[in-house]
């Protein structure tokens, strides 16, 4: 327990470093690109166009104002999946620094989560515009996006810490998580409403999929943005528990293995 407290205190001492690493990531990412930050907005919008074409026009999934529904789930999902997949390489990419300067190594995966969080915050603007344009204008329920974003960020941070550390020992992990997140995306109710899962024929499949820790977090966003209401208590509680448990697990594993990383680069 004391080790955990010390670890957190050390991280807090280096919060400025985390901000700088986030700023570095954003600066380097958009260097020499004409559209710059606009890509952060365009990326989910282009994905939205494709998914809307496929699932709303071709496959007729029957969700009114599909773009609003889709973006509500896709934006937090992108935070989670992109954070975890990019963080997986963060320790390897920063090994030059890790070998020379003693800072809590968690700053490297966490700063990646931070920069993806900026992306999410920026993308909320076009989401609000599209929601308003399609007749679901943002209301006071949107204030509950703040805790939703906190919960999603904790979940993303937990996964990022876990995968970044494991990748150092098993380089297979980075290939594995690409596949993991593809499958995970399709079993999470993002492109289809969660009722589809409840109507599944096989009770086994239904109960397995109901254990998906990402579902309550995504549902929270959909309830607020698409349904325009606060999340029900059960969803909010499940989302919070799932995020907290993931963060604790990720942090604990990371802290246990941190000193060993340098021997496996």
């Amino acid at each position: 327990m004391t080790a955990a407290v010390k670890g957190i205190a050390a991280l807090l001492r280096f919060r400025e470093l985390m901000f700088l690493l986030v700023a570095r990531d954003l600066k380097v990412r958009y260097k020499r690109s004409i559209l710059g930050m606009l890509w952060t907005l365009l990326n989910p919008l282009l994905q939205m166009l494709v998914y809307t074409l496929v699932f709303s026009r071709i496959m007729r999934i029957g969700v009114p104002q599909f773009p609003v529904f889709l973006l509500a789930g896709l934006l937090p999902w992108t935070l989670i999946s992109v954070s975890a997949t990019s963080s997986a390489l963060s320790l390897l990419n920063n090994q030059g620094l890790i070998r020379k300067i003693a800072v809590p190594q968690a700053v490297y995966p966490l700063s990646i989560v931070g920069s993806k969080l900026v992306d999410l915050a920026v993308s909320l603007v076009p989401l609000a515009v599209i929601a308003a344009a399609l007749g679901r204008p943002p209301g006071s329920a949107w204030l509950l996006l703040v805790p939703a974003v906190v919960v999603a960020t904790c979940f993303a941070a937990g996964l990022s810490l876990l995968f970044s550390s494991l990748t150092v020992f098993f380089r297979d992990v980075r290939h594995l998580i690409d596949i993991l997140f593809q499958i995970w995306f399709y079993v999470t109710p993002i492109i289809y409403p969660h009722e589809f899962l409840e109507k599944l024929g096989s009770p086994l499949l239904r109960s397995v999929l109901s254990l998906n820790p990402a579902t309550p977090i995504i549902r929270w966003f959909q309830m607020v943005v698409y349904e325009g209401r606060p999340p029900d208590l059960r969803t909010a509680a499940l989302a919070t528990i799932s995020a907290a448990a993931t963060l604790v697990l990720g942090f604990a594993v990371f802290q246990r293995l941190e000193d060993e990383h340098i021997h496996y680069f």
Binding site: R13, F14, E16, L17, L20, L21, R24, K27, V28, K31, G96, L97, K100, I101, A102, V103
Partner: peptide
């Protein structure tokens, strides 16, 4: 630690940005 000077430099950033980055790596505030 002057272990390999400039260990913490990011080649894409300017010298000025790197001063702040390096400082932060050593635990100094902006």
């Amino acid at each position: 630690p002057m272990i390999e000077l400039a260990a913490g430099f990011d080649p894409e950033l300017t010298g000025r940005d790197n001063v702040f980055l390096n400082g932060a790596l050593m635990g100094y505030s902006r």
